[in-house]
Design a binder for these strands. Structure first.
Length: 427
RNA sequence: GGAGGGGUGGCAGAGCGGUUGAAUGCACUGGUCUUGAAAACCAGCAAGGGUUAAUAGCCCUUCGAGGGUUCGAAUCCCUCCUCCUCCGCCA
């Protein structure tokens, strides 16, 4: 949620920055609505004040044993008037809330302009696209021999699910453990286990709702029940751990890592990446979440991105780092780095991690606070998160980059302890 | 699934229709005292919104959430959420 105060003070500059994201913010309409809200609020509050004063008078009179009938008559018409004034005010207020909840975060100053992923800017590159002295296969062809079975998964559920068997299943588990251990032991994150189902308040808190409900899997217990949602990322449960809470300064920075499955309906992406594991309804991800003091968040974004990069480097996977342009930036993010791993099967760099600073946007939506020791007042902290990494896509990258001519796959050294010492995964 | 008891300020915990936004304690902030600290004492200490030059005053809202009764609700009624205790069931 945008800072309503800031929006009132300087709507023009916010509108200008939102334009970088391709969002037209109607400043005039917002200000007009806000003027209405103020006027109606004053009307309503005057009536409330009258009611309060008169009611207190009645209380006093009664205590002194006076006749309160004339006072009651005086107050009679007030009730209806007040109800009307409150309804008017509430109507305008809810329009304003809708705008505030539906408006994305403003991009940081150094976010490049652009419409889509083609306008993202490469920041750095690690390693070179893997060279082969044979024609490399993609992960689907490699996986067929190693235990990837999408047909069985379709039989169980539908398209865009996968069954992994044997060594491949173990490789995915090894990757997960390796990532959790790396972030826990080397990068100072606390491992957390969280629910995979979240309520609507949580999804509003991180920004998936109200605008992106079609991307989620909703579940209802009964027809009339409010829905719960399968989490699309661990960002939702982990960040919402502090929803409605006040965090003490000495507890910051909070750094948490969680492994969860992620569920995405992938509505609107029919026909894209239909082959293999790249775009699934269910996939595993190790997620990094940080809660930091506002002044520390930009340094924290660099640090957190580095933590994700460390995993790619240990797995000897070539990648590049891009900064997302305004048009490709997510709803809640102020700035995002994507890490894109080289996939020989596609001869392309593909997203494997997305690391974002949300500044106070999520904290304000979920009313998370920290007590600023300088003012002793509660203020929204800054939140960040990043994939560290998407496990399914990492599995793809390991298979494709470390494949050999005979269809076997060399296990990266860092992973071998998690594979019982296995050096090569063969059919 | 059954029975019962709770949810109040940063925390603990009173209040159970009427000058209660809320006693008291702890924590926190400032002051007195002290060489310094502690103790003691004094004072302050919720958030959001409106008005305003104002982080001054004044006003409004908020006692789990939402509805209702009433001139007036933290206090009464209804629904929901949530926590705890006991029984049953279960991994």
């Amino acid at each position: 949620m945008l800072d309503a105060k800031l929006l009132r003070q300087d709507p023009e500059s916010i509108a200008k920055r939102l334009a970088v994201k391709g969002v037209q913010f109607d400043v005039a309409a917002f200000l007009a609505l806000d003027e209405q809200r103020k006027a109606l609020t004053v009307d309503m509050q005057e009536l409330q004040n009258t009611r309060n004063v008169k009611s207190k008078g009645i209380g006093k009179a009664k205590a002194q044993g006076e006749d309160i009938a004339p006072l009651l008559a005086e107050v009679e018409s007030l009730k209806a008037q007040l109800a009307e004034a409150e309804a008017k005010q509430a109507a305008v207020q809810s329009q304003i809330d809708e705008i505030l909840m539906g408006t994305p975060n403003v991009p940081a100053d150094d976010v490049p302009a652009g419409n889509d992923e083609d306008d993202n800017v490469e920041v750095m590159k690690w390693g070179e696209p893997t060279a082969f002295d044979f024609e490399p296969k993609d992960h689907v062809d490699l996986g067929e021999q190693l235990g990837l079975d999408t047909e069985t998964a379709a039989n169980i559920a539908s398209a865009r699910f996968a069954v992994l068997k044997g060594g491949l299943a173990r490789l995915q588990r090894a990757l997960t453990q390796f990532m959790l251990d790396t972030h826990g032991a080397e990068h100072g994150y606390t491992e957390v286990y969280v629910p995979y189902i979240a309520n609507a308040d949580s999804l509003r808190g991180t920004g998936q709702l109200p605008k992106f409900e079609e991307d989620l899997f909703a579940i209802r217990r009964g027809e009339d029940e409010v829905p719960f949602y399968l989490i699309p990322t661990a960002e939702v449960p982990v960040t919402n751990m502090v929803r409605g809470k006040i965090v003490e300064d000495k507890e910051l920075p909070v750094k948490m890592v969680a492994h969860t499955p992620c569920f995405r309906s992938e509505a609107g992406s029919y026909g894209r990446d239909t082959r293999g594991l790249i775009r699934q309804h269910q996939f595993e991800k190790v997620e990094l979440v940080q809660l930091v003091r506002p002044q520390d968040s930009w340094a924290a974004l660099e640090e957190l991105t580095g933590h994700a990069e460390a995993v790619l480097q240990k797995l000897e996977l070539p990648y590049r780092k891009v900064i997302l342009c305004g048009g490709d930036l997510g709803f809640s993010a102020a700035k995002t780095y994507d890490l894109e791993v080289w996939l020989p099967g596609q001869q392309a760099y593909r997203e494997i991690s997305s690391c974002s600073n949300f500044e106070s946007f999520q904290a304000r939506r979920m009313q998370a606070r920290w007590r600023n020791p300088e003012t002793n007042k509660p203020e929204p902290p800054h939140t960040l998160n990043g994939s560290g990494l998407a496990v399914g896509r990492t599995l793809v990258a390991v298979l494709e980059n470390h494949q050999q001519a005979d269809g076997s796959v060399v296990i990266p050294e860092a992973l071998r302890p998690y594979m019982g010492g296995l050096e090569v995964l063969a059919p």
